[in-house]
């Protein structure tokens, strides 16, 4: 049982914790606020915090200038596509490892994780050339393939740690009840693992949404997701803070919201189940 804590101490901790929390969150807050300012107010000195003329103008300018919605839909397709495809490949693999473990299961898992250690830049050129020659450069399908592959080890690992906690007897019961392998996975394993699968899904959507090596190097115009949309604001051109802020807010808002809702489930997933 936690002991009663003196109110004074609790107040002190509250102040410190909020101060630190706001400090860490401040860059995001500031970006969101700036996105509602005019360009002039955005660089005004002294900076105005809340008392300025709120405007939505930047958002429409950004949409017109850089076509936010096209990049947004690319991001959605690429991150959801690669995650779902990854799950489709990883669920059977994780089933095998968790429920029919062999002598080499652990080695296979370690090997899979070690492919994550492969620096992407080490294979940038071949992938770039292969994509150029097969017409996959700057296509969404190409990016879905690459992101599926780079996230596959993480998906398999995460699912493995969740599956491992499901008692094998329940799957055996299904087998005794006449379920074929397919039914066993679809009707018994998957529904039981829904929380684990959901957090795997969320984490991988977040990782894919924010992935900024392959998305920057393999896209130009057609398939460019939000990471590239933002990168186009990297060279300054006159007054652009408010527009940059609006674009940034639009790029991070969807994932920030998903992330906040799922933060509890994320911890386990993020650590491959090593911390609960």
């Amino acid at each position: 049982m936690a002991r009663a804590v003196s109110t004074r101490r609790k107040a002190l901790v509250t102040i410190c914790a909020w101060a630190v929390g706001i400090a860490i969150f401040f860059p995001i807050l500031w970006t969101v606020l700036t996105s509602f300012k005019t360009e002039a107010e955005a660089i005004a000195s002294p900076p105005s915090f809340l008392f300025f003329d709120w405007t939505l103008e930047n958002y429409s300018t950004v949409q017109e200038r850089s076509d936010y919605f096209r990049h947004f839909s690319n991001s959605v397709i690429i991150s959801f596509g690669s995650t779902l495809l990854g799950l489709l490949i990883a669920i059977p693999a994780a089933w095998s490892m968790a429920f029919v473990p062999g002598k080499r299961t652990k080695d296979v898992l370690m090997w899979m994780l070690s492919t994550k250690m492969l620096p992407p830049v080490g294979v940038l050129i071949p992938i770039y050339l292969l994509f150029r020659d097969t017409g996959l450069l700057d296509t969404r399908i190409g990016l879905v393939m690459v992101l599926t592959l780079i996230n596959l080890p993480i998906i398999v690992w995460m699912l493995f740690t969740y599956f491992r906690e499901i008692p094998g007897e329940i799957l055996e019961a299904a087998r005794m009840d006449g379920a074929e392998l397919w039914s066993e996975i679809v009707y018994v394993l998957t529904p039981m693992a829904v929380p684990g699968i959901a957090s795997t899904l969320l984490l991988n959507i977040i990782l894919s949404w924010n992935e900024a090596f392959w998305t920057l190097n393999l896209t130009a115009v057609d398939a460019a997701p939000l990471t590239a949309f933002i990168a186009s604001y990297s060279s300054p051109e006159g007054l652009f803070y408010a527009k940059l802020s609006a674009a940034s807010t639009m790029a991070i808002a969807p994932i920030l919201i998903i992330g906040w809702f799922s933060q509890k489930q994320l911890v386990r997933g993020l650590t491959f189940g090593a911390v609960k």
């Binding site: 860490i24 860059p27 924010n210 900024a212 920030l256 933060q263």
Partner: peptide, 18 residues
């Protein structure tokens, strides 16, 4: 907690530019 975790969800290009 929500305030503290937020930067993790920000894509690298955005945080760098901001």
């Amino acid at each position: 907690r929500i305030l503290v975790i937020a930067p993790f969800f920000v894509m690298p290009t955005v945080s760098a530019l901001v």
